[in-house]
Design a protein around this nucleic acid. Structure first.
Length: 487
RNA sequence: GGCCCCAUGGUCAAGCGGCCUAAGACACCGCCCUUUCACGGCGGUAACCCGGGUUCGAAUCCCGGUGGGGUCACCA
């Protein structure tokens, strides 16, 4: 078997899409699983829309996800350059070959003419399938005349008439396409830049790509590419077309379905490991009952024959669950560090933090992370620790505070707290117990009002820990406020 | 519309002719744990798109229908 060489070949024309990330992941996993090479190539032949900025975004996102590449932009390699606009002379060489072989020809039709032609056919009720072939058999004299008019030719590939192209796909099996349904397509635009279908073939061959793993939207392009491979006398790589990621309404995932850019998930506080785990399970399954996998585990198990053929709906609920799981499992310092920017942005915090403050923050995050689907949500759960005054969150809290035993409970507790130099969780627990004895009430009658007085809510994390985090002074003051009916 | 792909619970999915009175996960519901909420544990509701074949036997194979999706650019 040939050495495995796979590539991820994004076009840097916008934010890095979740679907692109999954393609990248599958390629990376495949390379790592079989000891192959993972290549990143930039397909920037759309001069209008491509930008260095979005190229850098994509590369940064790849690194953030933990997907490193062996060859490609920035790292170099033996098959470079890895940006298509830097390989123009290469394409030109093969264009000349195709022209010479008469597998390609110059087309002088303008975009306007083609659009008009298409419209005319549509008006007659005939749906078009590709180019009609006006310039297919131009004589050298015709070409000279057209060029004298100032027309710049594009170059089209001459699709043979009655052939059938068979795509042997590793996930879909054999897929047949009639050439009659294809129509001569442009391989070099009139500005001399190759089109996607052409550049991809030259690059995949010259980079010795063994497997092309990409989204299903490219399946119908594949026969064109195979035609090109054949005309150039090259052996096509193996193909594997992975089904698309769909939005809730079952159409291709797009902006209107919510966040589609990797960057957005990063900004909301999703952990790269969780995202990778989630994406891997979208369209691929290891078969067992386990759902949580590290990148390391994934790369040991991944295989194309367990890739599903049917499209998958992006389920945010499941992502949130998985991400929450990662947030709860990860080392507390890691999660704390990731949470800091969100807390800063919410105005709860200013950095740098003193070591004491950082330790305190870790305790806050420890309690808060139990509730999180993503880090962004942490700000909804920490107000009680940062705010100066307590705000009643629910009517029930107010009702609880109005109960008859409450003044005695709060007064007793307040006395104990004020007499205590440093309030720890252990001490808080002991105090609450003692309050019960002194006042002669127990259980809920103590805990719920104390919680309400301290946090404005009747539920929340472990009360002892909450008290320890608030500290002696804040607890004492809040108890006093509650006693004075001041909240 | 032409061409192509796909079809198991609301969602992700296991299943690759008998082990299926169909796994697991998310979501949902109940119970337990707990001072409360969450986490966690236990349990529950819920699916083979339809119609024909093939076969002793079909969720699994074949054909047709229906439904969904993709693609038909001098975008990738």
């Amino acid at each position: 078997m040939l050495p495995v060489r796979v590539r991820f070949a994004p076009s840097p024309t916008g934010p890095f899409h979740i679907g692109g990330a999954r393609s990248a992941l599958f390629n990376w996993l495949f390379a790592r699983r079989y000891g192959g090479t993972f290549i990143v190539r930039i397909e920037d032949t759309d001069l209008e829309r491509s930008s260095r900025e979005s190229e850098e975004n994509i590369l940064a996102a790849l690194r953030w996800l933990g997907l490193d590449w062996d060859e490609g932009v920035e790292v170099g390699g033996p098959c470079g350059p890895y940006r298509q606009t830097e390989r123009l002379d290469l394409y030109q060489r093969y264009t000349e070959q195709l022209l010479r072989q008469k597998d390609a020809y110059r087309c002088y039709c303008t975009e306007e003419e083609l659009a008009a032609e298409r419209e005319a056919l549509l008006a007659k009720g005939e749906l078009t399938t590709g180019y009609l072939g006006r310039c297919r058999d131009l004589s050298p004299e015709d070409c000279a005349r057209l060029e004298a008019e100032g027309r710049k030719p594009a170059i089209r590939f001459r699709v043979p008439n009655n052939d059938v192209i068979v795509v042997k796909d590793l996930v879909r099996g054999e897929v047949n396409f009639e050439c009659s349904g294809i129509g001569d397509f442009i391989i070099v635009k009139s500005d001399g830049i190759p089109t996607y279908n052409y550049a991809v073939v030259v690059d995949d061959h010259t980079m010795s790509i063994s497997h092309v793993i990409r989204a299903e939207e490219h399946l119908s392009n594949t026969p064109r590419q195979i035609l090109l491979f054949n005309a150039l006398g090259w052996k096509p790589p193996q193909f594997a077309h992975v089904s698309l990621i769909l939005g809730k309404d079952r159409s291709k995932m797009s902006k209107r379905h919510g966040a589609t850019a990797i960057e957005q998930y990063q900004e909301k506080g999703y952990l790269p490991g969780a995202l990778v785990n989630f994406l891997a399970l979208l369209g691929w399954s290891p078969g067992g009952e386990e759902e949580v996998f590290s990148l390391e585990q994934l790369k040991q198990q991944f295989s194309l024959d367990r890739v599903a053929k049917s499209p998958a709906v992006f389920d945010l609920d499941k992502l949130n669950w998985l991400n929450g799981h990662y947030i709860r499992q990860a080392p507390i310092e890691y999660v704390t560090d990731l949470a800091i920017p969100f807390l800063e942005k919410a105005g709860y915090l200013t950095t740098p933090l003193t070591p004491e403050r950082y330790e305190w923050l870790k305790a806050v995050v420890t309690l808060a992370r139990e509730y999180l689907g993503c880090l962004e949500d942490i700000t909804d759960h920490v107000g009680i620790y940062f705010n100066d005054r307590v705000e009643i969150q629910e009517a029930e809290a107010r009702e609880v505070l109005a109960e008859s035993q409450v003044p005695a409970v709060l007064t007793a507790l307040r006395g104990m707290v004020e007499a205590c130099p440093e309030l720890t969780g252990v001490e808080a627990k002991a105090m609450l117990k003692k309050v019960g004895k002194e006042v002669g009430v127990k259980g809920k009658q103590i805990f719920i009002p104390v919680r309400a007085a301290l946090t404005g809510s009747t539920h929340g994390p472990d009360l002892n820990q909450v008290m320890a985090i608030l500290g002696r002074d804040k607890v004492a003051r809040r108890l006093a406020d509650a006693l004075a009916n001041n909240i």
